[in-house]
Design a protein around this nucleic acid. Structure first.
Length: 880
RNA sequence: GGGCGACUAGCUCAGCUGGUUAGAGCACCUCGUUUACACCGAGGGGGUCUGCGGUUCGAAUCCGUAGUCGCCUACCA
């Protein structure tokens, strides 16, 4: 029995326990009868808390997984978390800082232990939160990117790529985060727009103190690292200076003037100072001209020993002020102007990123990208929506070397050992490295391990196969790889999707997933990005507490259309909570009227019952198609409207009089049909709203199965189009009658007499077949269907298709108001008729438009003309 | 600088390969019989589809162009 109201908090807990204690989310790799379907979860950061983006992402995956299970697939939804190198290390360091301890106080080993302790105690909170949403992951298979198995995969991949020459060590400019004191990849750098200043300095020409070259710079303090000034070879202003030297002010070091394509005569002064160790373009210029590279910064971005002593130890902003002062004192300042520019900031630390010359490990992404590009070109992997593939190609075709080393402690340590002479031994374990070293040196030696760890995305890049057991040849790998679809946000196409494609193509020779579905961002109700600083964030768990997980999921899903962002607000969730209540009450109604559950599909004789079965199957088919197209908004909309606009107000209302006045046979049939249809509704709605549906399923009957294990309605067409059309007509008629009543303020309590004049045979038949229903829904006491009659004075009439509806009224009606209403209706009809007539009189239209279009127009015209005629009679009767 | 997307009722959005008297939800107005539901029911008002030009018998739908907004990406001496 269903209680008076649905309590999400209690039901969600109970149902989750039932699902999980029976292991219903588990995959069955040995079940040969079922086709496999698999999804790997985008692993959330182990430090993370569930936000609405996760809620959306996982609601979508859950819909797909539950749907596929119901369709008879063996589903693996592979869960897990990411160790999130920088984020996690920062968090633990912050905690330690509260006790006044730095990671250096602890030392590397102790620190890493501390992080593991933290992880064991507090990490993975987000996984618990996913359970609350109803996520049907195979929780027994949860993985972590630093698990032993996954670490093994990481080492194997690194070693192989190294041995293939696709991973290499290089000294080059990288994005350096001076606070975290590590290199970061291009993707971890955020460009921020600011209005800076362009300063113009004069560099004297060597041997001719009265001649100067004016250069423009936005970073005066980097002048200590200048090793040339570049000009364009054709620039008349500077041509004569090429090959000569300038004197770098303050330090009084001489630097050459070189001709280089990088110098653009139209920009700045046409002469550009070259600082190879602190600018990416200058680095290239430096290499072209074999210029010295002078690094002037320490790891914390203060100036180092390569600058004049009174600058050493200053921060860049301080040094800048000092340089400006000094240049002015030297009379070498030309002028300055405001300069809008973008400045790189660290994604995590938020501080200014410095290009810094360091030794780092790189992946030759250009090489790995080749197969990853091909796989999308030839359709082995498909983007949904398709237009994202442009973004993918654009980036992949211009891909830069991927800097994978991080100067952190938390993460996968690079499997590289150095011999006494710095020879590199890249092996999967220290034992193997020692062996290799012994072979190399002909004796045992001490090795020192590289201290760097890998970019977090290096291990996430292997996620699609490492979680399935690779490099072991596991049954899961065989059965579930390649995975069926990846569901994620477009913001990590480059970080993750692209890297998975590259790694998977290289190591598996096969795509990691057949499709990638990219959903939008969750925003607040005004369409603004949610952020802590704006304070407009909405906590999904709060929403669960307040409205239930089903309502939250549904409000996300119903907006998840291709290429659309999702807006979130209390009022939206509230309205879907109302939908939950609606379903609950509909179920209660069925139950109270003795609905029969757990039976096979009925074969009813009453039109209304045939009708709802047909509608139900059409809806189920549509929903299935839309899920397969990843149109979650359309799919949820279709369920929503079927329940709220068809099942409840039409069908349930229509069967009330049957339960009340029907014959025993009719009542039994209707109990069966309404029970059956409700069960089908529960099945179709289940992927979207797993809790309420499972709860109703559970509480209404003794069942063998939980709802989530039921089979999706058969997709073979079951449609009774004729009955659908008939009953649709009936309900249209109901609306027309209700509208007529309402128009003259007849109280709903008043039972009326209704005359219908001139109705055709077919429609008469429909009305008489469903007379009980029609009368109940429109509160008609007496119904007269006549071929011809005079409309009584003081009665109210309305043309309805070929017939005229008439309600005799004893009381007064407002003739004026009524006349106006009819006139307006007539005017509408006339305008339609005129337009349609013109169209049909147009030879070009008749000769070129498809026959079906013309036929439809003719039919509509005929009908409108007939109705118009009737309506004109009604008007004449009213005023005459 | 390059690219992508959006612009349809007060708000949020449907409207697929051109043919609908342009739809929905929320909001709004009116009225509330019926023990499923007031977290509800019935009825109703409201838009000519950002501007301009074009293609077409026919355009919200295709093309061009202008504008506004958003996102991605590059560069910035």
């Amino acid at each position: 029995m269903l209680d008076k109201s649905f309590e999400p908090a209690i039901a969600e807990k109970e149902i989750t326990e039932k699902w999980e204690s029976q292991n219903l989310f588990a995959c069955h790799p040995n079940d040969d009868k079922k086709p496999a379907f698999s999804i790997v979860i985008p692993p959330p950061n182990v430090t993370g808390n569930l936000h609405l983006g996760h809620a959306l992402d996982n609601a979508i995956q859950d819909v797909v997984c539950r749907f596929k299970r119901m369709q008879g697939y063996d589903v693996l939804w592979q869960p897990g978390t990411d160790h999130a190198g920088i984020a996690t290390q920062m968090m633990v360091e912050k905690n330690l800082a509260k006790q006044g301890i730095s990671r250096h106080d602890l030392g590397r080993e102790k620190f890493v232990e501390a992080v593991w302790d933290w992880k064991k105690q507090y990490g993975g909170q987000i996984i618990k939160q996913l359970h609350r949403l109803g996520a049907s992951c195979d929780w027994s298979r949860e993985r972590f990117t630093l698990d032993e198995g996954l670490s093994k995969a990481v080492r194997k991949v690194f070693v192989q790529l190294y041995k293939e020459g696709l991973i290499y060590k290089d000294k080059r400019l990288v994005n350096w985060d001076p606070v975290l004191q590590t290199a970061v990849s291009d993707l971890e750098v955020i460009q921020k727009e600011v209005v800076g200043t362009m300063w113009y300095f004069k560099y004297p020409v060597e041997g001719n103190p009265n001649e100067f070259v004016t250069i423009a710079t936005t970073r005066p303090e980097t002048m200590f690292g200048d090793t040339a000034v570049a000009v364009s070879a054709d620039d008349e202003r500077y041509k004569h200076l090429i090959g000569k030297n300038l004197v770098l002010p303050i330090v009084n070091r001489t630097i050459p003037v070189v001709a280089d394509e990088h110098a653009d005569p139209t920009k700045g002064t046409g002469a550009v100072k070259i600082t190879p160790a602190h600018d990416f373009n200058d680095f290239e210029v430096g290499k072209r001209h074999q210029l010295p590279m002078i690094n002037i910064l320490n790891k914390d971005a203060t100036l180092n020993e390569n600058v004049p002593s009174h600058y050493q130890g200053l921060t860049c902003p301080d040094a800048r002020i000092k340089v400006l002062t000094e240049i002015k004192e030297l009379g070498l300042f030309d002028h300055e102007e405001p300069n809008p520019m973008t400045i790189p900031h660290g994604e995590r630390s938020g501080v200014v990123i410095e290009p810094l010359l360091t030794d780092q490990w790189f992946v030759n992404a250009k090489e790995l990208a080749k197969d990853a590009i091909k796989a999308v070109e030839n359709g082995d992997m498909v983007f949904v929506p398709k237009n994202w593939e442009n973004t993918y190609f654009e980036w992949m075709n211009n891909i830069q070397p991927w800097c994978i080393s991080r100067q952190l402690w938390w993460g996968h340590q690079v499997p590289v050992w150095y011999g006494p002479d710095k020879t590199i031994f890249c092996e999967e374990s220290v034992e193997e490295a020692l062996q290799a070293a012994e072979k190399h040196y002909g004796k045992s030696v001490e090795l020192v391990r590289d201290s760097d760890v890998l970019d977090t995305w290096f291990s996430s890049g292997l996620w699609a196969f490492s979680t399935l057991g690779w490099p072991e040849d596991t049954i899961h790998l065989k059965r579930y790889y390649p995975t069926s679809v990846l569901v994620t946000g477009f913001d990590i196409i480059f970080f993750w999707v692209a890297r998975m494609m590259m790694m998977s193509m290289h190591f598996m020779k096969e795509v990691p997933f057949r499709k990638v579905y990219l959903h939008g961002l969750v925003r607040d109700e005004k369409g603004q990005k949610m952020s802590k600083s704006k304070g407009n964030g909405i906590d999904p768990l709060e929403m669960c507490d307040k409205y239930g997980a089903d309502a939250l999921r549904f409000s996300l899903l119903i907006q998840a259309g291709h290429g659309r962002d999702v807006l979130m607000s209390d009022s939206r969730v509230e309205s879907y909570r109302n939908f939950v209540t609606k379903i609950w009450n509909a179920a209660r109604f069925c139950e109270m009227n003795g609905a029969i559950f757990g039976q096979d599909k009925p074969t009813p004789t009453l039109p209304i019952n045939k009708w709802i079965l047909s509608k139900m199957h059409t809806a189920a088919q549509n929903v299935a198609r839309m899920i397969d197209e990843y149109a979650f908004n359309d799919a949820s909309n279709a369920v929503y409207h079927f329940i709220w606009d068809t099942f409840c107000p039409l069908y349930l209302e229509a069967i009330k009089p049957i339960f009340h006045d029907g014959t025993t046979t009719e009542i039994e049939e209707t109990k069966h049909v309404c029970g059956y249809v409700l069960e089908q509704i529960l099945i179709v709605l289940h992927p979207f709203m797993p809790f309420i549906t499972e709860e109703i399923w559970d509480k209404t009957a003794q069942r063998n199965n939980m709802l989530m294990c039921e089979t999706w309605p058969s997709l073979t067409a079951y449609a009774d189009k004729e009955t659908e059309t008939d009953i649709d007509y009936l309900f249209d008629l109901v609306t027309a009658i209700r509208s007529l009543r309402m128009g003259v303020n007849i109280s709903p309590a008043t039972k009326i007499h209704l005359n219908i004049k001139g109705m055709n045979t077919k429609n008469k038949q429909i009305v008489s077949d469903n007379e009980v229903v029609l009368k109940a829904l429109t509160r008609i006491e007496q119904l007269n269907i006549v071929d011809e009659m005079e409309l009584p004075k003081g009665s109210i009439s309305q043309a309805y298709a070929e017939s005229t509806l008439n309600i005799p009224l004893n009381g007064l009606i407002d003739i004026e108001q009524e006349t106006a209403r009819i006139r307006k209706d007539i005017a509408n009809k006339e305008s339609f008729i005129e337009r349609t007539k013109n169209q049909l009189a147009n030879d070009a239209f008749v000769s070129k438009a498809p026959a079906s279009v013309i036929q439809d127009k003719r039919k509509a015209l005929e009908e409108a003309q007939q109705t118009l005629e009737n309506q004109q009679k009604v008007l004449a009767n009213l005023i005459g």
